[in-house]
């Protein structure tokens, strides 16, 4: 700690007092303020994995919407003459040339099956000669439909259930929680299977089973959050002022619950998609001849030694959809709950 004062030369004129700067000026916040949602979206845009996933999913959704009205071929039309054709997009494109290796010889399967020139099956055909690309389109559309229905159950059953249970507390809460406890102590697959036995296998039973179990996590999260929110000052104030519970729910609770709800919804979609594919894979989901990612994969698995392409495409598509939804959900969670990042 040395004394430098002697060495420094400063003009005497500099020693004039100046007015202290305006305090308000200093305390101005220079960055523009962002609302919570804007801030979250900004963080989401920064997350490259989530953004790519979002675009990918949008494309997949668009293709699925198209498949409602149009597919390259009829997905359920059988044509045994064209059975097990390999993928073909054009001549000489590796993996998509319509050729197969039979006993060490490259054979043009399309020529063998006497497929008219210009008719291509871009992902090949299955053992009944059905166009796999069309079936895959239908399968993806079905998966997304299941995902949408899961969201619906989350919002229509899960959120109100959690809100009521958390808000009422006391006996209502105890009974409602006991019900949830019982439902969740049966593996939900077992519930689904019981449903499938009770009703005919198919979309209806899967949806019914989802309606029984799919919303439970959402209800739990919403309840826990409601319990915390209930004791917050501004909610207490609203209650003291005599606002009706429904108004409080709409004005104070739902906005504060929105990030939890959005994030949990994004996690239930892949869970539901997995479930349908799983059930169809073990043969108790979507019945033949309709296509589902699960049935396509199961069919592919049976013949993968000889016709691996029949397995790879459904496997890849379901994996991509699941990864994209999970990455997007992760991104949303990080965006809405910044503390999870640090």
């Amino acid at each position: 700690m040395t004394d430098h004062s002697g060495k420094i030369q400063i003009k005497p004129a500099s020693f004039k007092p100046v007015a202290a700067a305006n305090v308000d000026e200093q305390e101005k916040i220079s960055a523009p303020s962002l609302t919570f949602v804007q801030d979250a979206l900004r963080r989401l845009r920064k997350n490259r994995a989530a953004t790519v996933s979002l675009w990918l999913l949008l494309i997949i959704i668009m293709i699925s919407v198209v498949s409602i009205w149009w597919t390259p071929s009829n997905p359920n039309a059988q044509n045994v003459a064209y059975a097990n054709l390999p993928p073909k997009i054009g001549q000489g494109i590796p993996g998509f040339s319509g050729q197969a290796n039979v006993g060490g010889r490259i054979v043009d399967k399309y020529a063998q099956a006497k497929v008219p020139k210009g008719t291509y099956f871009i992902l090949g055909t299955d053992y009944l000669g059905r166009d796999l690309f069309s079936r895959l389109m239908k399968g993806v559309a079905l998966s997304l439909l299941i995902g949408m229905l899961a969201t619906l159950f989350d919002l229509v059953i899960g959120v109100p259930y959690g809100l009521i249970s958390g808000w009422h507390g006391g006996r209502t809460d105890t009974i409602m929680q006991r019900i949830i406890e019982i439902i969740s102590s049966i593996p939900n697959l077992v519930i689904v299977i019981l449903m499938l036995l009770l009703f005919t296998p198919g979309l209806g039973s899967i949806v019914m089973a989802m309606g029984l179990t799919g919303w439970i996590t959402m209800a739990r999260l919403v309840r826990a959050e409601t319990l915390t929110l209930k004791s917050q000052e501004y909610v207490l104030a609203a209650r003291t002022l005599g606002e009706s519970p429904i108004k409080i729910a709409i004005k104070h609770l739902i906005p504060n619950l929105s990030s939890t709800i959005i994030i949990q919804t994004m996690f239930s979609i892949p869970t539901a998609i997995f479930f349908e594919a799983f059930l169809s894979f073990i043969g108790i989901g979507i019945p033949a001849p309709n296509a589902s990612l699960g049935t396509l994969l199961a069919d592919g698995q049976k013949t993968f030694r000889f016709l691996p392409y029949q397995m790879w495409y459904p496997a890849a598509v379901i994996s991509i959809i699941m990864i994209a939804f999970n990455l997007l959900a992760d991104g949303l969670r990080d965006a809405f709950d910044p503390k999870t990042q640090e």
């Binding site: 799983f278 894979f281 993968f304 691996p308 496997a315 699941m322 999970n326 990455l327």
Partner: peptide, 21 residues
């Protein structure tokens, strides 16, 4: 992320294809 996203039956089939077959 991969482990959480890819369904176990897809994993099973992939393992079966590569490591066993």
């Amino acid at each position: 992320i991969i482990g959480r996203s890819i369904p176990n039956f897809v994993f099973a089939v992939i393992l079966q294809f590569f490591l066993a077959f």
